[in-house]
Structures are given as structure tokens and as C-alpha cells.
Design a protein around this nucleic acid. Sequence first.
DNA 1: GCTTGACCTTCCTATCATGGGAAGGTGTAG
DNA 2: CTACACCTTCCCATGATAGGAAGGTCAAGC
Lengths: 130, 130
Amino acid sequence: MNIGQAAEASGVSAKMIRYYEQIGLIEPPARSQSGYRVYAEQNVHTLRFVRRARSLGFSVEETGALLALWRDRSRASADVKALALKHVAELEEKAAALQAMATTLRHLASHCHGDRRPDCPILDEIGAGS
Amino acid sequence: MNIGQAAEASGVSAKMIRYYEQIGLIEPPARSQSGYRVYAEQNVHTLRFVRRARSLGFSVEETGALLALWRDRSRASADVKALALKHVAELEEKAAALQAMATTLRHLASHCHGDRRPDCPILDEIGAGS
DNA sequence: GCTTGACCTTCCTATCATGGGAAGGTGTAG
DNA sequence: CTACACCTTCCCATGATAGGAAGGTCAAGC
């Protein structure tokens, strides 16, 4: 399987597969005589794991830690759970921060007439600072 | 006022003040004979506006649009409100995406014993892909 | 066999916002 | 006069991703 097919099968772009290899997140695959990367089903499996971890908001570095745990059959499930819950806390913190911004801004907007007149409490408040 | 004092007074780092000037977000300030940037109270006011807009999650580019609206006394408040509400929608979308990740992951974690045994549904599920 | 087009390779560049640091000039207090 | 804090510009790094250029490879069709 060439990189394009591995990309198709895993949902990770060829560009990103090469990048993940370059930074050491995944193992360099076999090469054909002409230098093409050759992927086996196992590699695609790993790539899918990476894609799914990324889609759950894990950074590439955290994904590397998860991969190591995935491959280490002797680690305690408590280690994995701790990592996951720590990440949940970070995600919820970020979500709350964004939601707080949205709420503040929505509040400011609710005081703005939104007509043709120029006076606007949104800009007034941003300008007043806090 | 030198850049350090302007940074202190506005809450924007000296590094970022120079950067904002370089990309054209803010006007180049006056310079002293020796080439030091010299800021007036008005400049600090603008910097505070920028800091506050950034803290509400507006990108630098959007902040530039807000600044233009702020300075244009003839614009309709509806224009500002539309921009603000569009941004609110984007913020809430991002917040919801993060919260969805957190919820999924918390769900996975709830099925993990979290003890010394190695079997862990979190990694199993990430590996299984979806 | 030869051409064409799809694919692969590496390498360089960009994004966005921010910080770090080097090398060198300035300003001020002791 | 010296020390130290501050300023200047310039370059580099981050994290994850995309775009593109220049050149090699492979398979299908003529």
C-alpha cells in the first residue's frame, strides 16, 4: 500500500503521515525499491488511532503518549484513565473560556440597538476596557 | 511614554505592540530623537481596545475591523452588532466542539476500571476507530 | 517502445499569535 | 565614568496543517 492509499484508508492526509513520521510519532514504514513508502494494515491501524486521538483534542505529543500506552500491554488502566481525565478537564476549561467570551459578547450585543444610528455599547465597552 | 510603559499601561506586551505596528493593525507612533517609540495616552487607549477585543476571542484581523468601526463615527450600530453576533456564533460553535470531545472522552473513561489491570476501553475504543 | 497522467519523493514556504534571544545603541542614577 | 535598565532591529521557534516546485516512478493505452 502506497502513502495515498494509506491516507485514504486511515483518514490522515499523506502530508500529515509524512509529518508524523518526521517528528517521530509513528515508525518509518518499509520502502519499495524505488523509495516509495509501503504501508501494511497494522500501520493503517496506528494511523487511525492517531486520527481518532487527534479528533478527541489530544495534541500530537499527548497522542504519542497514548500510543505508547496502547502498545504497552502491561501498563495499568489507571494510567490511561488519569491521562484521559486530565485531558477532559483541559477540554472543559477551554470550552468554558470560549463560552464565557461568547456570553460576555452576547450580553454587550444585547444592549446595542443594531439600527442605523452610530452609538454602540459594544464598541464603547471594548474601548472602556476592564 | 516609552514602549515599556505603554505595555505596562495597556496590558499588551512590548513585543506584541511592535508586531501590531508591523502588520498595520495600529499606527506607527512618534519617535524620539534617538529612535525610541513614543506613545501618547490615545495610543494606550487604542492598545487597550485591542487587548480587550483579543480577550473576547477576536482574531487580529477581526480586531482591525472592530478598530475601524470604532473610529468611524458614522457607521451604523447594526454593522457592529452583526459582526459581534457572527463572532458569538463562532465562539459557541468552537465551545460546543470542545465540549463534545470532553463528553465523548469522559464517557469512554467512565467505562475504564482505572486500576492496575491493563485492559482499558478508552484505548480500545480509540483504536477501534469510528 | 513511447507518451501521458497519476502518483511518489524531498525541500521550501506559509499560516496565526506569541515569545526568546542576540547584538548593539540610549538614558539615567550613583 | 560605570553600571544597569531600557530601547532598537533582526532572526528563530512554537503547533498542526496546507500548498507548491522540481524531479523520479509506475501503469495504461497507443
